[in-house]
Design a protein around this nucleic acid. Structure first.
Lengths: 179, 179
DNA sequence: CGTAGCATGTAAGCAGTTACATGATTAC
DNA sequence: GTAATCATGTAACTGCTTACATGCTACG
């Protein structure tokens, strides 16, 4: 059981999903390709943490809808209390910025503008997630409390939002520094 | 040539360092173990991007001091202008937070307190980096400009600092939410 | 007397990416 | 027509972590 496996179980505690949906929903918080997720799901199923039903579709390809089992829920609760790995951050831009004095202002500004656009897109996606959570919970976000099912998703998106805002502020700060 | 290899070259544009020092200095921005760095350095040396001198020491183990070559500097400049990989973020805490409604307030607060301590330590280390940069440049940080050697390190530490401050703010926000 | 820091390296294994493989539908 | 979305899977490869290996000095 690696971290991503627990991450998949974590998503499945809210409701059943296909491997494809899991891949999409874990993206903002843990980048994983389908080629990593499908084998892990098969493994989770073999160990009794999840189960699936085969759903044939006519217009789209057939799908497997996975649900978490009791055993899976127990394992997930235990995992939360276990020591947490430190976050891992790998940002090529950071490595480039270290030796930015090698280039002139124009290429440096280009680098920044590209990254700013990436953060703005990410920010938009997070806003959509806020909207979805509001819909699903039927409450204003501020009213959500720990045992509400949507509390976790809400505070997680808030975490991502605060971080992306910090990143955008840095981009603005840098732009001023460079001009 | 992978991203970490360019990262090592990036550090070597400032001054010569040993593999051990490279490992320590790249830590805050790209987590890499010595077992990954040493083979990459050997490879960079074989391809003429870096060279080293063997420095015998009596009290400590002998060391290899690596310097970047002209070829290495050229490659590094070209790399900056190439498309930049999107940042990768893997935070187990984020996955746990998603299903935090499974547990009670106490374990949730414990999780948060542990992470807050981690961020505070990181923040202290970044402050030390600011001090080092100030010393090395001999200027107030705000006076640094793009072609100053210490401009890159300065704005990079600023980036990390703004991010860690956002993370700490989230921890505080969460603590209020949970009490 | 044990632990941390300095300093380098290799080997085995796990995690993650890229590429291969298929195939229908919808939107531009 | 060509790209994107839905949907699953495997194979080969690269990247990264953990463990093995050595050995001296300084600190508590």
């Amino acid at each position: 059981m690696n971290t991503l496996s627990y991450g998949l179980l974590s998503l499945l505690t809210k409701h059943s999903r296909t491997g494809y949906e899991l891949m999409q929903h874990i993206q903002p918080f843990w980048q994983a390709k389908h080629s990593q997720i499908y084998p892990l799901l098969a493994q989770l199923e073999q160990n009794g943490y999840v189960e699936f039903v085969h759903v044939p579709q006519s217009d789209k390809p057939d799908k497997k809808v996975y649900s978490i089992t009791e055993k899976g829920k127990e394992a997930t609760s235990l995992w939360i209390a276990e020591p947490t790995d430190e976050p891992v951050m790998r940002d090529e831009l950071a490595l480039k910025v270290y030796c930015i004095s090698l280039v002139d202002k124009e290429p440096a500004l280009k680098l920044l503008a590209e990254r700013k656009e990436y953060y703005l897109k990410k920010r938009n996606r997070l806003h959509l997630l806020f909207d979805k959570i509001k819909e699903e919970s039927g409450k204003p976000l501020e009213k959500l409390e720990i045992h509400d099912s949507q509390f976790g998703p809400y505070v997680l998106v808030q975490k991502a939002m605060m971080k992306v805002d910090a990143d955008l502020s840095w981009c603005e700060w840098m732009k001023k520094k460079l001009s």
